[in-house]
Design a protein around this nucleic acid. Sequence first.
DNA 1: TGCTCGGGTGGGAACGTTCCCAATAACCGG
DNA 2: CCGGTTATTGGGAACGTTCCCACCCGAGCA
Lengths: 336, 336
Amino acid sequence: MQTDRPATIRDVASRAGVSKSVVSRVMRGAGTVSRQSRDAVLEAAEQLGYRPNAVARSLVQRRSFNVGVLVSDLHNPFFAEIIDGIESAAAAVGYRMLIATGNRDRNAEAQALETLLELRADGVILLSPRLLPAVVAGAGQTVPVAVVANLMRVPGVDVVVNDDVRGAELAVEHLAGLGHRRIAMVDGGDGAGAAERRRGYEAAMGRLGLGGLIQVASGDYTEEGGYSGAQSLLRLDPPPTAIFASNDLAAVGALNAVEEAGLTVPRDLSLVGYDNTALASLRHISLTTINQPRREIGEMAMQAILRRINKNRVRARRAVLEPKLVARDTTAPPPL
Amino acid sequence: MQTDRPATIRDVASRAGVSKSVVSRVMRGAGTVSRQSRDAVLEAAEQLGYRPNAVARSLVQRRSFNVGVLVSDLHNPFFAEIIDGIESAAAAVGYRMLIATGNRDRNAEAQALETLLELRADGVILLSPRLLPAVVAGAGQTVPVAVVANLMRVPGVDVVVNDDVRGAELAVEHLAGLGHRRIAMVDGGDGAGAAERRRGYEAAMGRLGLGGLIQVASGDYTEEGGYSGAQSLLRLDPPPTAIFASNDLAAVGALNAVEEAGLTVPRDLSLVGYDNTALASLRHISLTTINQPRREIGEMAMQAILRRINKNRVRARRAVLEPKLVARDTTAPPPL
DNA sequence: TGCTCGGGTGGGAACGTTCCCAATAACCGG
DNA sequence: CCGGTTATTGGGAACGTTCCCACCCGAGCA
C-alpha cells in the first residue's frame, strides 16, 4: 500500500504555512529560523512522513556525501573488517558508504566501478581490485580514488597496504626462533601481495643464513592451492619441518595435506598462515598467522579519500602498515 | 589531477554540434537519431570522458534503478552468496545493487535503511534484519521491501526463507537413518530461524519414536555457543551419540569440545551443522550440514521486489524454500 | 524621527538529466 | 506541384533540492 508519491519539501512547506526555504533550513539545521516556524515544519514533516530526497540534494550540491567501496570478492571475509574501518571513519565525518561488488571478475568490477562513478560518489575505495591500472587511473582523474591491499602504482591514486615483505619475515623469524631450519613456503601465485610475501620469505631466510634451504612450492590463495603445494613439499627429502603458507586459507589446505600424510601439527611440522582471518582463530584450527591491521587499513583509506576531497592533492601517497605475528597452536619447536 | 568539473550533456552537445536532446537520445539508445549525429555524439562523449549523471537522471525519472540491500553482518559469509543471487537477478533487468550495512546493531541498521531510502532506492532487501517490525513496516509503505532469512510478519512486505523446520528434520532423519537414537541438539538462541530449527528437531524426534530422548543444550550461533553447549551435552549420562548444532559455526565449536573430550568424530560421535557455509566444506572440517539454497533465495527476493515495482501488489507473499542435506565426514553409524 | 542593523523570510536560479511537443526537412503519392 | 506523412531535431518544462539575494519588520541609536 504505497503512497503515490513521496512528500516533497513543498508539501511540507504548504502544510506548515511557510516557504520551502524555511523547510530547507530546518531540515539542514542551518540558517536562522524562528522557534514557531521550526516546530510547525517539524510537525508537518512528521505527519507527512517526509524524507529529504538525497538525489535532488546531491544534484544541486554537486556532492553526494557517499563514498563508494568496490569489493572484489564479498566471499572473502578478509574484507569485512576493512569495510568496518572505512565505515566508521566515514560516519565520523557524515559520509555514507555504498558497496558494489565485482565477483572476482575484471569486467564485472569495471562495470561496478562505472556504476559508482555514475552515481557520483565523492570518492571510491577499491579493495584488492583486479582492475587494469589504466582503468583505475581513469577513475582517478574524475574522483578521489584509494586502492587497498594491492600495491598498484597509479599516478594520483593513494594506496594503503600492509607490509607484506615484513609480514613474511616475521613468519620466518618466528619459526627460526623456535629452532626450525628447513622452513618451506607455499607461494600465493598472482594473489595480492603474494610476490612481496615471497620476497620477504627469501630475504629472511637469507639473512638467517638459511638461504640454501629455501624451498617454494607453487600455490595460490585457495584451500586447494595450499593443499597441493604442501603435498609437493612433503615429498621432498628431507621434508621441511615448517611451512609458511601465503594466506590462511592456503594454510588450512596445507594443514589437511599434512594430516593426511599422517603427521601431527605442530608436533611433527609447524604451520604459519597470513591474514589472521576468522578462520585462523577457530579453536579447531587455531592457526599461527600474520595479522594485518584491517580496521586501521580501512580507516586510512577513508582518510586518504577525505584528504583528496578537501584539498585536491596531486601527489600519490602510499601508506604501509605494520603486520604482527599472532602465535597460536600450529607452531612449536621442530622434532628432535 | 582532477578536472574541475565533469562534462555534462550540454558540453557533449555543443562539441558535437547538436542539441542536448540528441545527445540524450544517443546515450539512452532511444528514439531516432541520424547516423551522422550519433557518430558525432559518440566521438564527442569519448573525447570529453562524458559519463551520464545518474543522479540527475533518477531525479527526473523518479526511479533510480538501484535496489538497496541491507546486510546485518558482513562478517557472516552466509550472506555473500545470497547477495550473488540478488545481483544476478538485478543485473538481468538493468538494476544495480547498493549494499549498506549495520553491524549487527539495530540503530546502525535503522540508520543504514534510512540512507537507502533517502537515496531513493527503488526497492530494499533486508538480509536477516534485527530491525523492529514497525520500522520495516514503515519502510514498506514507501518502497517495495523484501525480508530474507527472517520470518517476519509484516503487512505489505514479502519474505523469503528456507524451511528451517524441514531442515532440522532432515538432520535428525539422516542421523536416525544411520542408527543413532540419542540425538541431541545445541540450540541457536535468538538467532534467525533458531526457534524453527528446534521445533523441527523435536518434531522429527517425536515422529521417529525418540521423543523420550530429546536433549537440548542452550547455545547460540557462535563458536563459543556450540562449544559450551556440546560440553554440557557430553556430561550427560549416557551421552548422546550424535549432536545437531543449530548452525555451522556452532558445529565447529562443538567439534572442538568433542575432540577435547578425547572423542573422535565421527567414530565416537556424529555431528551435523546448518547452513552449509564455506566453513563446512573445508576439508579439514568436512562437516555434514543442511544446505540453504542461498543463491536462489537472493534471486527470489529480487524477484519479489520487481513484482512490487511493476504492479503495486498489496498482499504480502512468503516464499519458503527447501533445504537439503549435504553428507560429509562428520556423520557415521554410532559406535556399537 | 530617521537610519541602520539584523533576525527572519520568501522566491528565483541552478544542478544535469528526461520528457514532451513543436518545428523543420525530406519524401511520398496522386 | 501540393497536402500529408515520416524522420529528425531543438527547446522548454519538470524533477526536488540548495544557494543566493532581496525584502520586511521591529529595535536600537543618534
